[in-house]
Every structure is written in structure tokens, then in C-alpha cells.
């Protein structure tokens, strides 16, 4: 019991530190308008780097696991995702005072949802520890910060994977999952980039998609 409580405390502390690092900077930037554009840019960069790295890491989990050196592959995709997110987040923060408002809000929601899922997994899977709950929460935070793009990408990637599996059985269920996770990562990162290109704020968290229907 004591060890479990200590583990819980350690995991909670780790989660608080990681979450704090990810959200403190944009939070301060948004809460204090006198912080200036540089502060918002740095805050956006921190949130973008965290979200981008976790998205890229998750998106490459299955794909990288088909290479001879999956850990190196994961490192490369993670760093690339972090760089994209960092750049996009900085651009959003630099160009728009309120550009990170919705992202921060949905990131917090994602972290909470991830924690709930993590606690559920811990209840059903005996080998799960509090560090896994924290991991689920951080993953939820990262996905939540680009919720619409990640969700859209996951759906498109998943559908593509299922179709490929249907018509090319060698793709298999693992390939379908790889497509879904890869789609989530691409969609989430595209969400960040599109928002940065747009200047942020007008449709925070949205995909750069529009449809024109001719009457």
C-alpha cells in the first residue's frame, strides 16, 4: 500500500511537471497580455513541440516497428514531429494573441480524458501502473491540442487502412492500425501547420478544408 501510494505520488508529480512544462508557457502568455508576442511564441512553441512529438511518436509506432531499428526510426519521427509542432506553435503564438486559446483548452480536456482512459486501463489491466495513467494523460494532451486534425486524420487513415487490408490481405490488421495512427499524426501535424499558415485564431484547431457546393 505504501509503495503503491509512493508510486502514485511519483507519477502524479511527473505528470504535473510534464504538463506544467507543456502548458505553463502558453498559459502565462495567454493570461498576461502584457507578456508580449515573444512570450506567446515561446508558449506556442512549447505546446506545439509537445503535441507534435507525441503525435509523431504515436503515429510511427507501428510503421517503425517494421524496420530493422524501430527505436531509431521512432526517434527520428519524434524529433521531426517536435520540430514541426514547435515551429507551427511559435508562429501561431507570434502572430495571434488568442491563437492558442482553444488549443490550450482542448489540450487540457484531452489530458483529463486521457487520464480517465488511463485509470480505466489500469483497472482492467493489472500490469498497468500510475506511470501508464500519466502516459495516457500526456498522450491525450498532445492529441487534444490538435483534436480536429488528429481525429480527421485518424478517420481517413483508418478507412484507408481498412480498404487496403480488404483488397490487399498482406496489409493485415497491423497495417490498418499503422495507417490509422499515421493518419492521426499527419492530420494533427497538418492541423498545426495549417493554423500557423492561416495566422492562428480564426479557426483554431480546425483543418484547412472548405467545400463549395455549386447550386
Amino acid at each position: 500500500m505504501v509503495r503503491s501510494a509512493a508510486a502514485l505520488a511519483r507519477s502524479a508529480a511527473a505528470l504535473a511537471i510534464v504538463t506544467g512544462l507543456m502548458t505553463w508557457a502558453p498559459g502565462r502568455a495567454l493570461g498576461q497580455n502584457d507578456e508580449g508576442s515573444a512570450g506567446r511564441a515561446i508558449g506556442g512553441a512549447a505546446l506545439g513541440a509537445a503535441s507534435g512529438s507525441m503525435l509523431a511518436l504515436t503515429g510511427g509506432l507501428v510503421g517503425c516497428n517494421r524496420t530493422l531499428r524501430p527505436s531509431r526510426c521512432s526517434r527520428i519521427t519524434t524529433v521531426a514531429g517536435a520540430a514541426i509542432g514547435l515551429t507551427a506553435g511559435a508562429a501561431i503564438g507570434w502572430r495571434n494573441d488568442s491563437g492558442l486559446d482553444d488549443r490550450l483548452e482542448s489540450a487540457a480536456f484531452g489530458a483529463a480524458a486521457g487520464a480517465v482512459v488511463g485509470v480505466g486501463l489500469k483497472y482492467f489491466i493489472r500490469q498497468y501502473e500510475w506511470i501508464d495513467v500519466a502516459s495516457a494523460s500526456v498522450l491525450g494532451l498532445a492529441v487534444g491540442a490538435s483534436a480536429q486534425g488528429s481525429g480527421f486524420g485518424f478517420a481517413v487513415g483508418g478507412a484507408t487502412g481498412l480498404l487496403l487490408w480488404r483488397f490487399h490481405p498482406t496489409v493485415g490488421p497491423g497495417g490498418a492500425v499503422a495507417w490509422a495512427l499515421g493518419g492521426m499524426a499527419v492530420g494533427g501535424l497538418a492541423d498545426w501547420v495549417a493554423d500557423a499558415v492561416r495566422g492562428g485564431g480564426s479557426e483554431p484547431g480546425g483543418m484547412p478544408l472548405s467545400f463549395s457546393v455549386a447550386w
Binding site: A45, A46, A49, S71, R75, T78, A82
Partner: peptide, 15 residues
């Protein structure tokens, strides 16, 4: 702080 954040994420995810 930025470098620390990016470093933590990268280290944790690439070990």
C-alpha cells in the same frame, strides 16, 4: 524552459 520541455519529450520518447 523551451529546451527543457523539448528535451524531456524527446528523451522520454526516444530511449
Amino acid at each position: 524552459r523551451l529546451i527543457l520541455t523539448a528535451g524531456v519529450v524527446t528523451l522520454v520518447s526516444g530511449c
